[in-house]
Simulated scan of single mutants.
Amino acid sequence: MKEWIPIPGTNKDTLIKVALEEFSLYGYKGVNISKLAQKANMTTGAVYHHFGSKSKLYEVIRTDMEQRLIDRMEGAASLFDKPEEAIKAALLTGLNFAIKGNICKLISEEAPYDKKDKIEEYISELTVENDLPIEVVLISSWRSILKGISSNQLTAEQGKNLIAWIFNKGE
């Protein structure tokens, strides 16, 4: 069991739930720790006691959401033999999860800490058979779609249609 998983109902659990909501709505830069603590009915000291900093709290939230997203993407991709179909299914499943969880903004933004991007790594693994570094285009397009949805420039349906369009252009 991961050490940061909180016991339900504890202050740490409450902070994680409120932080997930805040970071998902406003992104890293848009979240104020004082306001986050106030929304959780706690002090800023409680946030720093449990997480040390805003960036570490964000990292806990982001890492958890990325892993949940990748788990779903892997499951969807495993259903297909053809790499193109597996990648398309993974991206669509990831998009659906991000939309349902309201984490499009969280997942689309660049992380404020230096760690490997696990989603990018996963998509790179799926595209390893390709002669071109197609993952560069896929990950940037996918994240742009997430960003467009989070800023209301795209609907969820338009995002899904864009992913389908990317894969249909090669036919």
Score class of each variant (00 low, 15 high):
Glu3Pro: 02
Trp4Glu: 09
Trp4Gly: 00
Ile5Met: 15
Ile7Tyr: 13
Pro8Thr: 00
Thr10Tyr: 11
Lys12Arg: 15
Lys12His: 07
Thr14Met: 15
Leu15Phe: 02
Ile16Asp: 03
Val18Phe: 07
Ala19Lys: 01
Ala19Asp: 02
Leu20Ser: 12
Phe23Ser: 01
Leu25Val: 03
Tyr26Phe: 13
Gly27His: 10
Tyr28Ile: 11
Lys29Gly: 15
Gly30Tyr: 08
Val31Gln: 06
Ile33Ser: 01
Lys35Gln: 11
Leu36Cys: 01
Ala37Val: 05
Ala37His: 05
Lys39Arg: 14
Lys39Cys: 02
Asn41Arg: 15
Thr43Ile: 06
Thr43Lys: 10
Ala46His: 08
Val47His: 08
His49Gly: 00
His50Ala: 03
Phe51Trp: 04
Gly52Lys: 04
Gly52Ile: 06
Ser53Thr: 04
Lys54Gly: 00
Lys54Cys: 01
Ser55Tyr: 06
Lys56Arg: 14
Lys56Tyr: 11
Leu57Asn: 02
Tyr58Lys: 01
Val60Cys: 08
Ile61Ser: 03
Ile61Asp: 02
Arg62Leu: 11
Arg62Phe: 07
Asp64Tyr: 00
Met65Pro: 01
Met65Lys: 11
Arg68Ala: 05
Ile70Asp: 11
Asp71Ser: 06
Arg72His: 03
Arg72Pro: 00
Met73Ala: 07
Met73Ile: 02
Ala76Cys: 06
Ala76Val: 01
Ser78Asp: 14
Ser78Asn: 15
Leu79Pro: 03
Phe80Pro: 04
Phe80Met: 10
Pro83Glu: 13
Glu85Asp: 15
Ala86Val: 05
Lys88Arg: 15
Lys88Ser: 12
Lys88Val: 05
Lys88Tyr: 00
Ala89Phe: 01
Ala89Thr: 09
Ala90Lys: 02
Leu91Ile: 05
Leu92Ala: 12
Thr93His: 02
Gly94Asp: 04
Gly94Val: 04
Leu95Thr: 01
Phe97His: 10
Phe97Leu: 04
Ala98Lys: 04
Ala98Arg: 00
Ile99Cys: 12
Lys100Ile: 01
Lys100Thr: 08
Asn102Ser: 14
Asn102Cys: 09
Cys104Met: 09
Lys105Pro: 02
Leu106Tyr: 05
Ala111Cys: 10
Pro112His: 13
Tyr113Val: 12
Tyr113Met: 06
Lys115Cys: 08
Asp117Trp: 00
Asp117Cys: 10
Lys118Thr: 08
Ile119Lys: 06
Glu121Asp: 14
Tyr122Ile: 07
Tyr122Thr: 08
Ile123Phe: 05
Ile123Trp: 09
Ile123Val: 15
Ile123Asp: 08
Ile123His: 07
Thr127Tyr: 10
Val128Thr: 13
Glu129Thr: 14
Leu132Asn: 07
Leu132Cys: 00
Leu132Ala: 03
Leu132Glu: 10
Glu135Tyr: 14
Glu135Gly: 03
Val136Asn: 09
Val137His: 06
Leu138Val: 01
Leu138Trp: 05
Ile139Leu: 11
Ile139Ala: 12
Ile139Pro: 06
Ser141Ala: 14
Ser144Gly: 15
Ile145Leu: 11
Leu146Asp: 08
Lys147Tyr: 15
Thr155Met: 08
Ala156Asn: 11
Glu157Thr: 13
Gln158Tyr: 00
Gly159Pro: 06
Lys160Ala: 13
Leu162Val: 04
Ile163Asn: 04
Ile163Phe: 02
Ala164Tyr: 07
Trp165Gly: 06
Ile166Gln: 08
Phe167Asn: 09
Asn168His: 09
Lys169Thr: 04
